[in-house]
Amino acid sequence: MPMTPWGGPRQRTHRSGDDRRAWVVAALFARLALSAGFLSAVADRYGLWGAPGTGRVAWGNYHRYLAYVQVLAPYLPHGCVGPAGGAATAAEAVLGVTLLLGVAVRISAWASAGVLLTFALSMFLFSGPEAPLNASVFSASGLALLLALAPPGVYRLTLDRRP
Rank of each mutant, 00 (worst) to 15 (best):
61 N>V: 00
92 E>M: 15
104 A>E: 04
105 V>K: 02
92 E>A: 15
57 V>Q: 08
137 V>S: 15
72 L>I: 06
116 L>S: 09
144 A>Y: 08
4 T>A: 13
141 S>K: 00
159 L>C: 13
66 L>R: 07
6 W>Q: 10
51 A>W: 04
75 Y>A: 10
19 D>I: 00
14 H>V: 14
12 R>G: 12
76 L>M: 05
33 A>M: 08
27 A>Q: 00
155 Y>L: 09
29 F>G: 11
137 V>T: 14
146 L>A: 10
54 T>E: 12
120 A>L: 09
125 L>V: 06
16 S>K: 00
157 L>N: 15
31 R>G: 12
126 F>A: 07
42 V>F: 11
32 L>M: 08
69 V>N: 03
137 V>K: 11
47 G>S: 09
46 Y>A: 05
8 G>E: 11
35 S>G: 07
75 Y>I: 03
81 V>S: 13
45 R>E: 02
79 G>W: 05
75 Y>R: 11
55 G>M: 01
128 G>F: 14
109 A>W: 00
160 D>P: 11
48 L>F: 14
16 S>W: 02
46 Y>H: 11
41 A>P: 10
121 L>G: 10
121 L>D: 15
68 Y>L: 11
54 T>W: 05
132 P>F: 00
27 A>H: 03
88 A>T: 03
90 A>C: 15
117 L>V: 07
26 A>W: 09
81 V>C: 12
76 L>S: 12
95 L>F: 04
35 S>F: 02
147 L>M: 01
48 L>W: 10
86 G>I: 01
98 T>D: 15
67 A>I: 04
115 V>S: 14
17 G>R: 06
41 A>F: 01
96 G>I: 01
65 Y>M: 00
40 S>K: 06
16 S>N: 02
4 T>C: 00
147 L>N: 04
49 W>I: 03
24 V>G: 14
15 R>I: 00
11 Q>L: 09
54 T>C: 10
2 P>R: 11
6 W>H: 09
3 M>L: 14
17 G>E: 00
75 Y>S: 13
10 R>M: 03
63 H>Y: 13
76 L>Y: 01
135 A>N: 09
63 H>L: 06
152 P>N: 05
10 R>L: 05
33 A>H: 03
123 M>Y: 08
134 N>V: 14
29 F>M: 05
